[in-house]
Amino acid sequence: MKKYIIFAISFILLFVLFQILSGLVLTYAYTPDIEEAWKMSADAPQETIIRSSGSSFLLTLLIAFAAATITYFIPKKLYSSLY
């Protein structure tokens, strides 16, 4: 059980770190097209509606954590059934 707790904590920390680093790299590499944005702004509505899609990061983290948990226990089940 101790191994699993260490695995789970390290997985969550690495997952969050990689998400932040990938966001930084993608933000740094993004170059906006100003002319295209200006052309598209002519058709934009005058009012802005802000909608939240919820906590998609939390859902992604939970799904990844569930996958990692299943992956952690599969080899143990396979080895115990073989030996």
Rank of each mutant, 00 (worst) to 15 (best):
M1T: 07
M1C: 03
M1A: 09
K2N: 07
K2G: 01
K3F: 04
Y4I: 02
I5L: 10
I6W: 02
A8C: 04
A8S: 11
A8V: 06
A8M: 08
I9A: 09
S10H: 01
I12M: 06
L14V: 13
F15L: 14
F18D: 02
Q19S: 10
I20F: 12
I20Q: 05
S22Y: 11
S22L: 13
G23L: 04
V25W: 06
V25D: 00
L26H: 12
T27D: 12
T27N: 15
Y28K: 12
Y28V: 06
A29Y: 11
A29C: 11
A29Q: 15
A29T: 15
A29L: 14
Y30E: 09
T31R: 15
P32H: 08
P32T: 11
D33E: 12
D33H: 10
I34Q: 12
I34Y: 10
I34D: 04
E36R: 15
A37V: 08
A37L: 13
W38K: 15
W38T: 14
M40E: 14
A42G: 08
A42V: 15
A44K: 14
A44H: 11
A44C: 05
A44G: 04
Q46T: 10
Q46E: 10
E47S: 07
E47A: 08
E47F: 09
T48I: 14
I49D: 06
I49R: 06
I50S: 07
R51P: 00
R51N: 07
S53G: 14
S53V: 09
S53I: 09
S53E: 07
G54L: 01
G54A: 02
S55Q: 09
S56P: 04
S56Q: 13
S56T: 14
L58I: 13
L61Q: 04
L62F: 14
L62I: 15
I63A: 11
I63V: 15
F65C: 05
A67M: 08
A67N: 04
A67W: 04
A68F: 03
A68M: 07
A68Y: 01
I70H: 00
I70R: 01
Y72L: 00
Y72F: 15
I74P: 02
K76G: 00
Y79T: 05
Y79F: 08
Y79K: 10
S80H: 05
S80C: 00
S80N: 09
S81W: 12
L82Y: 09
L82V: 12
